[in-house]
């Protein structure tokens, strides 16, 4: 259990929740292995306390901060978001945390802050996936958002799930949640947040730029080159019901976020 939180119903979906057991046992967190069960198996001794986050770049108050000090001034909210993986499955998860924008504002972003870059911990001793010789991903994992995406009220830094502290396999102690983008954008176990005037590199884009774009907004009209994104399987599925649902533009958050991309060709900026 962590601190009290208040449900933000305005930002929450009414979709049926994916049970906690599945949320914490079916994960993509390649730092702990590429199998869905690997993170739950290999992340249990992951050290998340103490945890420091470096905030740098185009901010008035750069520095290395203790996680508690970053979180303390904020009221924690519970928000139920849909999570759509690029692999065409999805879950519904009650996250706990705060708006990323509220946190960034405390560090006085300058006018040159056009993008935000995030970095995951790099610690091969603790993260067996980073020791794999056959991985084509470069470590540490990096992700990025445009500043207006980062400041959007839906964009969240999460420190808990289902009322509990974030399990290590879900990205403890601090992870991003951007519900209208494919899951891999929601970077886990963040140690660095850097504001910059240039579009940052992102890990999956570096590996396969033709398959994973910088934006990676959920879009049923733009397929992954090797599979369709038109529909998804809502987990948990059962053998007698694949639980397939149509994928919605921006994962159903088009009313809130479509304006961020007005005038952009979403097939080009996928």
């Amino acid at each position: 259990k962590i601190r009290e939180s208040v449900r933000n119903t305005a930002l929450s979906t009414d979709d049926k929740l994916t049970p906690y057991f599945h949320v914490m046992s079916y994960n993509n967190f390649y730092e702990f292995g590429t199998g869905k069960k690997d993170p739950a198996r290999h992340a249990q001794n992951f050290q998340t306390d103490p945890w420091k986050v470096e905030i740098s770049g185009e901010v008035g108050k750069p520095g290395v901060y203790n996680l508690e000090d970053l979180i303390k001034p904020h009221l924690l909210e519970e928000r139920i978001y849909r999570l759509r993986c690029v692999e065409a499955w999805s879950m519904v998860v009650p996250w706990m945390g705060l708006s990323l924008g509220d946190l960034l504002k405390k560090f006085d972003p300058t006018s040159k802050a056009k993008y935000v870059e995030f970095t995951t911990l790099h610690d091969p001793d603790q993260m067996p996936g980073q020791r794999s010789r056959f991985s084509t991903l470069e470590w540490p994992y990096v992700e990025g958002l445009r500043i207006d995406e980062a400041m959007h009220p839906l964009t969240m830094l999460a420190v808990g799930v289902y009322g509990n502290a974030m399990p290590p396999q879900n990205g403890a102690p601090l992870r991003l949640v951007v519900p209208w983008k494919y899951g891999f954008k929601s970077i886990k176990s963040i140690v660095k947040i850097r504001l910059t005037d240039k579009m940052p590199n992102t890990t999956w884009n570096l590996m396969a730029p033709q398959e994973y774009g910088f934006y990676s907004n959920v879009n049923p009209a733009v397929d992954h080159p090797r599979w369709s994104q038109a529909s998804e399987r809502r987990l948990p599925s059962s053998l007698f019901n694949p639980n397939r649902v149509d994928t919605l533009p921006f994962n159903g958050y088009a009313d809130e976020v479509a304006e961020l991309y007005r005038g952009m060709d979403l097939k080009k900026w996928f």
């Binding site: 046992s25 079916y26 869905k36 499955w89 879950m91 399987r233 948990p236 599925s237 053998l239």
Partner: peptide
């Protein structure tokens, strides 16, 4: 394991 619902969130994929 399918019988005792022990194949995780996505038993279809597992099978």
């Amino acid at each position: 394991n399918a019988w005792i619902f022990n194949l995780g969130a996505d038993p279809a994929q597992e099978i």
